[in-house]
Nucleic acid binder design. Structure first.
Lengths: 220, 220
DNA sequence: GTACAATATGACCTGTCGGTCACATGACCA
DNA sequence: TGGTCATGTGACCGACAGGTCATATTGTAC
């Protein structure tokens, strides 16, 4: 948690610092991110930085919290079109709104996801909490889909969660990488072409998940 | 390329150095790997290290080349069971042999794949050549599968390659992470349970890829 | 033996890191 | 005005990085 001193700061100054930190982590990842550069780019002294944050991990966790909050707000605003969706339909909706979010906050998404997906594997304990949130949600979704008869009940839940997790991360990384090359990333994400690409990727997963085990297990 | 001095070394000494380097990159990734630790763990002086290699990147590229060669040898030895396989059957065979290889050389695989998949995204140009080899192979496979009528010809090749790439990397990471926890990794990989898990993961992809577009595109 | 080249060594270079601390500045209150 | 307390500062700390280089050791040929 940042110290009180940081929270007392004027909104504008806080934003400047957060922006500099986001840029730094997005560009260098956690290990190689430099506090010297962050303070230089945000125009504060190093002493001040350590009056605001405990240490490097403290800033980074703060960024993760900011991102998590903004993301939740974002999803709250965009309620799903209707309440009685197929689980996979709901999943597709989730992913697409997620991509909208990513393109609205591309650098922040990049900063956090880079560290979480990549270095996160090796900083396990520090980030486990954040990754757990996602996998829990996926696990609940798969179980619900089974109850509804949309997925074969013999499906290995842990495995399905891994598939969903891998898939969303891959799509997210793809959209972010390609999107960063575009002039107007939001426009690009919303374009029919990009949406179709996302759909196709999701259908590969969906079609594979819906029937896989019951169809193929016997073949082995 | 390592310098001649390194190649003149006794096999045993060379191995000691390579092992220390592999352990270092596997444990810390490229950026954070320390040459000081490598020389300490291999019992040579720092001066010697720089008589053997140009710089840090030089050792790492050497490791990648060693791995690539060993992998090719490994695949050559294990020719596929019969010549007239379905493309997906062949793909499954490839992946399984790949997992055998990974479990035979776990630390080296970990060292290289960690850097290639993770930091590789940000060191683009340095590693592009190694990643390209894989994507080219996948691209050829998909095109062949189309010719044979195993995949709908309307499938987006680039997208299918991305799917195959993501999938093999995800499976590989999963197997390696889980496998490292086992006492006997080779035995664990060969066990029926693990093989079944690999099969299921591959079937998700295969089933999704075989029919996806023709089935779903119209729905959009 | 001696001469000469190949190899080995570790102290040392410059640079950067995350983090600390004695001190300066400024705001508010008596 | 002087006192006090929150905020701001940057020189400085020890650790470690990748890389260099003068010197010492070793191997070989005569």
């Amino acid at each position: 948690m940042p110290k009180q001193t940081f929270l007392n700061l004027l909104e504008e100054k806080r934003q400047t610092i957060v922006n500099a930190a986001v840029d730094e982590f997005a560009a260098y990842g956690y290990e190689s991110a430099s506090i010297n550069r962050i303070v230089a780019n945000s125009g504060i002294s190093k002493g001040s930085f350590y009056q605001y944050f405990e240490d490097k991990m403290d800033v980074f966790k703060y960024l993760m919290d900011v991102l998590a909050n903004e993301k939740m707000e974002f999803f709250k605003e965009k309620r799903p079109p209707n309440g009685n969706m197929d689980t996979f339909e709901y999943f597709r909706w989730l992913v697409k709104i997620g991509m909208e979010f990513n393109s609205a906050y591309p650098r922040m998404t990049q900063a956090v996801s880079r560290v979480l997906l990549v270095e996160g594997l090796y900083y396990g304990k520090d980030f486990a909490k954040y990754r757990q949130m996602t996998t829990d949600a996926f696990s609940a979704m798969i179980k619900q889909a089974m109850k509804r008869g949309e997925v074969d009940p013999s499906v290995d839940v842990e495995l399905a969660v891994m598939v969903m997790d891998t898939w969303t991360n891959a799509i997210s990384a793809y959209i972010l990488n390609e999107g960063m090359k575009q002039k107007d990333i939001i426009r690009w994400v919303r374009s029919a072409k990009t949406q179709e690409k996302i759909d196709k990727l999701l259908y590969v997963m969906e079609y594979g998940l819906r029937k896989t085990e019951s169809q193929f297990v016997s073949k082995t």
